[in-house]
Amino acid sequence: MSQTLSGVLAMITSCVVWGLSPIYYKLLDHVPPAELLSHRTLWAVVFFAVLLVLQGRMGELRQALRGRKQVLLLFVASLMVATNWFCFILSIQIGKTTEASLGYYIFPLMAVLIARFWFAEQLAMGQWLAVVLATLAVVILTWGLGVAPWIALFISTTFALYGAIKKGLPLGPVISVTAEILLVLPLWLMVMGWYHLQGQGSFGTDLTISLLLMVSGPLTAVPLILFSYAARRVALSTLGLLQYINPTLQFLCAVMIFGEPFSQWHAIAFPLIWVALAVFSVSALRQDRASRKAVMVASGVSTQVTKSPSDASANP
């Protein structure tokens, strides 16, 4: 199996796990989101710690937690991803999985806006058109339902900000995420302790529930590891297209398994989002091809310039 194919399969697997995760969280919809998030944090730390010990990489983790600026960025990133996780879990528990999937559809377009106004990146016409279409979809949904899709906007914004912060961190994904959740672990341990002191803690009351809570660690860690594996072997444009598997499966879970309502306003807004993503993807693919072509041309020019006279005569 080629490295590209194994990377694609790893990316598909991670997106399928993320996309079907609402089914798992629905099994724990009686556990308050804050308590569930505290267990997700704890067991993810345990999973990553064991992994790093086995790999002999604990020194990298200690190094990542040095330097005031880097620790501050990691802490802010952890707040962004914790908010994202909380909104996602809450959306499933209150029957808003459809809105959560909308958030992850909007995320790439929100990331484009942040890239434009934070990193001063230039956007192609197709990318601007995609943003306009997505904005129109949100406006239509807000008008039709009488309320803005706040969960979708929170999920897309926090995840885009999380990605922007991570862009400035010179750390691998496993080390970075372990450091992030380790920094906020004391807070979530206090949350967990508070629930147990109130006699409302879910862990230990039932074997099945306790095991499901422990599974939240691998459920957080394994897709991330697969994504990291894929990112090193697959073109960024391919990763961008494959990531839409995640919100698509979430959407199908919401409508076909959970039976959430899908109004006429959703029927207008979602196709607009899908068109926006199609336009965005085509534009991204064109940019990627143009960039690679420019690199190849530059490389060819560089090769011609550095050739010796004897090389030139031997290879006309």
Rank of each mutant, 00 (worst) to 15 (best):
L224K: 09
G172N: 07
Q200K: 14
Q122P: 04
A115R: 01
L212Q: 14
L136E: 06
L136H: 02
T178D: 09
T178R: 01
S202Q: 15
V222Y: 12
G126T: 01
L145G: 00
L141Y: 05
T205G: 14
L211V: 11
W118S: 06
T142W: 05
S216P: 14
M190K: 02
L213V: 10
L189P: 09
L189Q: 15
S216H: 14
K167Q: 09
K166L: 01
P218K: 08
I165P: 05
S228A: 14
V147F: 01
L182E: 01
A231H: 07
F159E: 08
G126H: 01
A179L: 04
F154A: 15
R116S: 08
V147T: 05
S228E: 15
I114H: 04
Y105F: 14
T142A: 11
S156Y: 11
L185K: 07
A148N: 08
V215Q: 10
S210G: 14
I151M: 13
A120L: 00
V131K: 07
L187Y: 13
G201V: 08
L183Y: 09
Q127W: 00
T178N: 04
S202E: 13
A179H: 04
W188T: 11
L129C: 12
G199C: 11
A230C: 04
L207Y: 12
F119W: 08
M214G: 06
L212W: 14
V112C: 05
V174K: 11
L189G: 03
A221L: 12
R116Y: 09
G172L: 04
L224H: 04
P223R: 13
V147Y: 10
G144Y: 06
V222N: 13
I114M: 12
L187H: 06
S216W: 14
V215F: 15
P186W: 10
L183F: 03
S210C: 08
G193P: 09
Y162D: 05
K166V: 01
A221V: 15
I151N: 04
A160L: 05
S176P: 00
G103W: 07
Q122W: 00
G204L: 13
I106Q: 07
P149E: 08
F107L: 12
